[in-house]
Computed example of a mutant assay.
Amino acid sequence: MKKHRGKPIVQITDPDIEEYALRMTTSESEDVKKLVESSDEQLEYIDMLSGNMVGQLLKMLIKISGARRVLEIGTFTGYSALMMAEALPEGGELTTIEMNILYQELAENHFRSFDKDQKIILIKGDAREEVPKLAGVFDLIFLDADKLSYAEYYKNSLGKLASGGLLVVDNVLWDGTILEPQEEKAMALDAFNKAIADDDRVEQVLLPVRDGITIIRKK
């Protein structure tokens, strides 16, 4: 799926700088590279993959924070789930939720092939319904799902996040269209970003990495 086919976008980072930064970033494991190849073979577009810079940032946050229990909202074909699972310590677990049937099947196949330590649990369903059912709290939550539902996901997720835990949200700049939002998703993301900035229960930093990523820490 292409986000803005035929529509003008803002280039967030100079392409040469972004390419250089990517070259200077630790590369993906062979298993993750195989997952990308498999996804590309089976789908017309794979631009919803988080990408190596975001993936490595997630891995770094897990290692620095010592996270052992991770929740992902929006699996797609399993790229970011596998990246994060690779960073989890022994005994760590990652729960990921996906409602699209095709993506469920692709992710399930990928986890069967590449999740060698069986750290990933795939829940098939709507995260708006599934997250409230989950027991316990999580050390880190990664949100990368339906942009129109970000506010609801956030509301449900914050109660499942441990004190001092991290909530990482992808695509918060939406190719720069949040600056002068015209379409529905850009307007929803702009409203979401402003709500987070005004929420005194958390502290956050919005980074212009790839398509924009916000790191939120629950106080």
Rank of each mutant, 00 (worst) to 15 (best):
S65C: 10
R69E: 13
L22Y: 00
K218A: 03
G66Y: 06
Q42L: 14
T26V: 08
E184W: 12
L58R: 02
P15Y: 10
E30G: 02
A85C: 12
T77Y: 10
V54I: 14
G125S: 09
G159C: 02
V209S: 01
D16K: 11
N156S: 06
G212H: 03
L82G: 12
N100S: 15
D126E: 06
Q104C: 15
M60E: 13
S149A: 01
H4P: 09
V168G: 09
S27M: 03
D47G: 03
T177V: 15
E152G: 00
A145G: 02
E37V: 05
I101R: 15
E28G: 02
A21W: 02
E180N: 14
I215L: 12
S50G: 03
E86R: 05
L122I: 11
L61Q: 07
G125Y: 09
L158Y: 06
M24I: 02
Q56N: 13
V54H: 07
N109P: 04
V209H: 01
E37C: 06
K124F: 04
F138T: 02
E183I: 13
L22P: 00
R69A: 10
G176N: 14
E203Y: 10
V169T: 14
G91W: 13
Q56F: 03
A135I: 08
V36I: 13
I121F: 12
M53G: 01
E41A: 11
K219C: 01
R5I: 15
E180H: 10
T75H: 01
K185Y: 07
A127P: 07
Y45D: 05
I46K: 00
L167K: 08
R210T: 08
Q11C: 10
M83H: 06
D117Q: 15
E90K: 14
Q118C: 14
M83R: 11
R5A: 13
K219D: 01
I64N: 10
M84K: 05
A107L: 04
E152S: 03
I178Q: 10
Q11H: 11
S80D: 06
G159S: 09
A21G: 01
L166S: 13
I196C: 01
G212C: 03
G176D: 10
D126K: 14
V10K: 14
Q42Y: 04
I97H: 05
P15I: 01
I101D: 15
V10T: 13
F76I: 13
K133H: 13
K155R: 09
F76L: 15
A67D: 05
I141H: 01
Y153K: 01
E152H: 03
L158C: 07
G92R: 09
Q56L: 13
G159N: 08
H4I: 06
V32H: 04
T214V: 09
D144A: 02
D16H: 11
K119I: 15
A87M: 10
A85Y: 01
T77R: 12
E90A: 15
M48N: 04
G92D: 09
M1Y: 14
D126I: 14
V10S: 10
L134T: 05
